[in-house]
Design a protein around this nucleic acid. Sequence first.
DNA 1: GCCGTTTTCGGCCCGACTGTTTTCAGTCG
Length: 591
Amino acid sequence: MENIEIARRLEELADLLEIQGANPFRIRAYRNAIRTVSGLTRPLSEVAAEDALTDLPGIGKDIGGYIGELLDTGKLSILDEVTAEVPRELATLTRLDGVGPKKARKLWKELDVTTPDELEAAAKEGRVAALSGFGQKSVEKILRAIEDFRKHQGRFLRAEAVQYLRPLLVHVEGVEAIRRLEVAGSYRRGKETVGDIDLLALVEGDDDRAGVMEAFTTFPGVDRIEMSGETRGSVVLTSGLPVDLRILGPESYGAALHYFTGSKEHNVEIRKRAQKRGLRVSEYGVFEEEGKGGDDGDANSDPHAGRRIAGATEEEVFGALDLPFIPPVLRENRGEIQAADQGALPKLVEADQLRGDLHMHTTWSDGRDSVRAMAEACRDRGYAYMAITDHSQAVTVARGLTPERLREQWVEIDEARDQVEGIQILRGCEVDILKDGSLDLPDDVLAELDIVLVAVHSHFDLDQATQTERILTALRHPLVDILVHPTGRLINRREPYALDMEAVLQAALEHDVAVELNTNPRRLDLHDRHLFRARELGVPVVISTDAHRTAQLAYVDEGIHQARRGWLEAGDVLNTRDRDGMQAWLKRREG
DNA sequence: GCCGTTTTCGGCCCGACTGTTTTCAGTCG
C-alpha cells in the first residue's frame, strides 16, 4: 500500500474520531502522524521492513501498529470499529465550508443528516435553522457551501489563477496607502494548483486601513464578500477564486509574509522550534515570552505581549530561530527546517541554468510550428541544444510518424541544421510504449535516432502490476533515454495511471534512463514528491516543455517551480549540462 | 496518541472573524 493511501485512511480515522468527540490532543497526534506520512519520500513498506516506523516523528506504538496493519492486510480494524458508530460520509460533510466536526456531529445526531444532499434538503425545510447554534445566516452559508462543493471540487491551476487575480491586484494597488502588496500562500510556494489566493498589504499606521479594505471588497470582479474586518477580509471572485487580504504594518510584514506563505505544516514546525527557545511566533512577529506560567493567562491572549525580536522581514524571522532563509518552494515540512539548521539546504536549480529542451512537437505530428521555427525559437532562448520529438505511429490521432515518415523528417532536420546556426538539433522521437511494453518503432530505426523518449498514451486503465511491468519492460530496452510524463496525469482532469513509481524509479536507476519533468501546466509530471525521490535515488531528471508550438517553450518558466519544490539542484537535472556533457550522457552505453 | 538537553507526567501552534450568544464556541487558515 502506497504512503498516500495510508495517509488517507489515517485521515479518515482522525476525521471520524473528531466527530465522535475524541480527546482533541489525540486527534492532533493523528494529524501529526499524517503529516509525517504524507511528507515522507521513502515508501513506508521499506521503513516497516527495517522495523523503524516508530523512529518517525509523531509515530508511536499505536499508530505504528496501524500502519503495519495497513501494510500487511490492507485493512484497519480500528477504522472499521469507528465507522460502525459514526457514518463515514460525515467526514465529507466537514469538507463543506463552515462545517466542522462539531456541527457535523450535531446535524447527524439531531437531524440524522450525513450527506450534502440530505443537508441541503434539511436546510431548505427549515430544520437546520431550528437547531441551537445555527441561525438563518448559517443556513445561507451552508447552502452556498454545498453549491460550491458540487461545482468546484478541483483547485485552480496556478497559471489560471494568476489571470483572474491580475485585475484585482491592479485595482488594490491603486490605493495610495499601500506600500507593498504581495501574493503569499501556495501561490508563492510555487504549487501547481492553488485553492485560494492570500494577499498581504503593507500599510503604515492605522489611518487608511479601512480604505484599503474598502477598495478590496468593492472591486467589480467580486462576486460576494465572505468577511470584512479591520485587518482581514475575504471575498470570492466571479471566477470562483477565493481571495483573502491581510493588512499589516511594517514591523510585522515579514512575519506575516512568512506566516501566510505557509505551508501550515511548515508553520507548525517553526512554532514548535520557537517554543523550545522560549519564543512565540505569530503573524505579528517573533516575541520573547515573559513571566511564563506566572501570569493569569491574559498575557498569552494578547498577540503583542512580550518583547518583539523580529518581524519586519522573513530573514529576521528565520534569523531569530537561528535559521538561514528558507526558500518558499521548500516550506512543506519535508525536512527543510532540519536541512536549514544543518546548513544543508539545496542550491535549487534555476530556469536560466537549463541548456536545452529535449521534448517538443512540430507540424510532422500534432505540433503547430515547423522544425525550423522551433529551432529558431530554441536558439533565441539561448539553448545550446534541443530535440525534435514527434509522436510515433501508434498515436494516430496525433498523426504519429511511421519509420518512413520519420526518415523524411530527418531530411528536414538536416536542412534546419544548416539554416539555424548556434544550436544543436537532435533528432528524436516520442516513441509509444505499446500495451505489452514493447516499443512502437523497430530497433534499427531507434538506433538511428540521437535521443529516444518513451511514453504511455493508451491503455490507461491497466491494473497497477500490469501497468508497472509494461513500463519496466520499456525501460529495459537498451536504446531508451528518457521516460516522459511518467504518471500520465492531467491536473483536475485525469488521475495518474496505476503505477508503482518506486519500482519505476528503481528501474530507471538500474537501466540508466532519465525521467522527465514535463512542464506543461496541465501535466507537471513528474510531480514534486517523485522528483524528490528521484533525486534521493540519483535518477537523472530532464526538464522539458513538450511544446506543441513555439510559444509553449515558455512553459519552462512556470514548470521550474515544480523542480525546485522537488529540491532539485542543477546537478540533478540532465539538461543543465553543456553540449559536450549532454553528448557524453547520450553516448553513455557505448564503450 | 506522542513526546522529553528543564519533564516518563503534563503538556501539546496561534490568532481573526462570524454568528448566535448575553461572554463565547466553532471554524478557518
